[in-house]
Design a protein around this nucleic acid. Sequence first.
DNA 1: GTTAATGGGTGTAAATATAACACTAATTAT
DNA 2: ATAATTAGTGTTATATTTACACCCATTAAC
Lengths: 232, 232
Amino acid sequence: MPHTSRYQSHDKHYVAIDSIIFGFDDDTLKLLLIKRKFEPCKGCWSLMGGFVAANESVDEAADRILEELTGLKDIYLEQIHTYGEVNRELDARVISVAYYALINIKDYDEELGRSHGAEWFSIDEIPPLIFDHGEMVGKAMRRLKRKTIIQPIGFELLPEKFTLSQLQSLYEAIHQQNFDKRNFRKKILSMEVLTQLNEKDKVSSKRGAYLYKFDKDKYDYLIANGSFFVLK
Amino acid sequence: MPHTSRYQSHDKHYVAIDSIIFGFDDDTLKLLLIKRKFEPCKGCWSLMGGFVAANESVDEAADRILEELTGLKDIYLEQIHTYGEVNRELDARVISVAYYALINIKDYDEELGRSHGAEWFSIDEIPPLIFDHGEMVGKAMRRLKRKTIIQPIGFELLPEKFTLSQLQSLYEAIHQQNFDKRNFRKKILSMEVLTQLNEKDKVSSKRGAYLYKFDKDKYDYLIANGSFFVLK
DNA sequence: GTTAATGGGTGTAAATATAACACTAATTAT
DNA sequence: ATAATTAGTGTTATATTTACACCCATTAAC
């Protein structure tokens, strides 16, 4: 008997992706949700999702589905958990792998989003969500908080050039707490992964604030040499 | 058209569990591996695994599979990651959800394990593993290290009653580093989740060392009231 | 052109947490 | 009696974290 037949006695399952898509705008952390256009629960708010196809990896499916909604490629995406309760969806058994994505809200394709019924919600004004999506969002938030303490992934949510005040607002939005300005700047600059530019942003202040960019090469170098990024 | 038909255009997949089973014995952190009894790669070392059935949740499948190998129920099991590369196994496309388990090695059913070709390996003498199982073990180790810093799950690996020296050995094995005895005891006792018993363990010393047990109720109470367990 | 308003930028001291360190105690085996 | 073994205990130095307040540069309004 060919050994492949060993598999045939087992059950197969639909495997889906659900994406928790974070963006940052207006000093607020936001979440992209879609209004379901089909039953069950047509009209409910839901995370963006889709099914894993036979010819793509689970990670690839997550990338593809994110691109379908936002038009964006090469986005920071991280798997958080797989939800496998038998009855977690109503009509069929679907095992869902949840990912969270960090996108720069300015790059997001609003047209495309609208065509999917997508809308941004402030993180503290999330409507009730279908199935176990609320739980997924909670887990993603906790993961994001934890992760931004030990890895500078928060930068993914900002434009390439940003001021220290913007960065602080972002961290405050993620951690839902205020940080002391002097301590924050001291700490973030002491990590030596930001490069100060010879440009100022004058949008939010009259004096103008220096723009910085994240130096990924330097970050990678430091990590490779055993340094460790710890915020807070 | 009934909305259930929406699902029918999607692919279904085999979904498996792979379990990274940690135990602690002889001052060493160990891993339970099985020698494969079937192709592909018969004779290779592998993690314990199995398939998720239609009538059970993914977590239930993980429990069931662990019980099949160890005879143990109600074991600490935590999902770590889902591995979804198309060709990660050789014969068929299998999406695998990895879990790690912490078991008290004394409770483990050796007979049953042997019948599955299972053997314990010291964490620093792990043989090459099949497929992406080595990667899974690495991720589980990192997760265990991190988790034991912020949550007292390490206790799952010890008998109900243990000495502070045993606990320290366990933490040293998990973190692969030595801790200062006085600092370790100070810190662990200051968390106030250990109860000292009126019994001594005389196995490992002539003088005898006080036995302690983990006070889960107190721990839950402290967590519920916002305290936070932080080792190190 | 003076002034008011706005967000930008900076240093120090106190408090807390972490890390380093060495001897005595109790028991058993010889 | 004594040698060997693991248990148990406090203090000081160092590093990290927190708290805290004023001047700066520019623009807009008068």
